[in-house]
């Protein structure tokens, strides 16, 4: 797993695609999610571009693209059950699967140790 300073996680799958979600810490900070808006499949996003909208009872946020890439799949289940993100942020609560423009972009992101260090700052 790789992580971003915006509290997103990325998992590189065996086929070279990347699954993206928000971290346990992020869901905890946001609180109970009540709304998720997912991007269209096939849409291309630049790095840092907001790809998903996420809203809790009290806050609104987004999931920014940690790397440039094209949306291959979205977790439709979140639309009717955004609470899945709170329940299992780094598993069932994934948001999007992406084909990165350059898989090497993923390597530059934080590993788990670096992310944990960030949380402890």
């Amino acid at each position: 797993m790789k992580y971003t300073p915006d509290h997103e996680w990325l998992r590189v799958e065996t086929d070279g695609t990347v699954t993206i979600g928000i971290t346990h810490h992020a869901q905890d900070a946001l609180g109970d999610l009540v709304f998720v808006e997912l991007p269209e499949i096939g849409k291309h996003f630049a790095k840092e571009e907001p790809a998903c909208v996420i809203e809790s009872v009290k806050a609104a946020g987004d999931v920014k693209m940690p790397v440039a890439g094209t949306i291959l799949a979205v977790n439709e289940a979140l639309v009717d059950a955004p609470e899945k993100v709170n329940e299992d942020a780094e598993g069932e609560g994934w948001f999007i699967r992406v084909k990165p423009d350059d898989i090497a972009d993923v390597d530059g992101l934080m590993d788990e140790a670096a992310y944990k260090a960030l949380l402890n700052e």
Binding site: G31, D32, V34, S56, V57, K58, N86
Partner: peptide, 12 residues
């Protein structure tokens, strides 16, 4: 206190 561990939804 804006919320307790139960969270806004459950508290409401």
């Amino acid at each position: 206190p804006v919320q307790y561990p139960a969270g806004v939804l459950k508290e409401l």
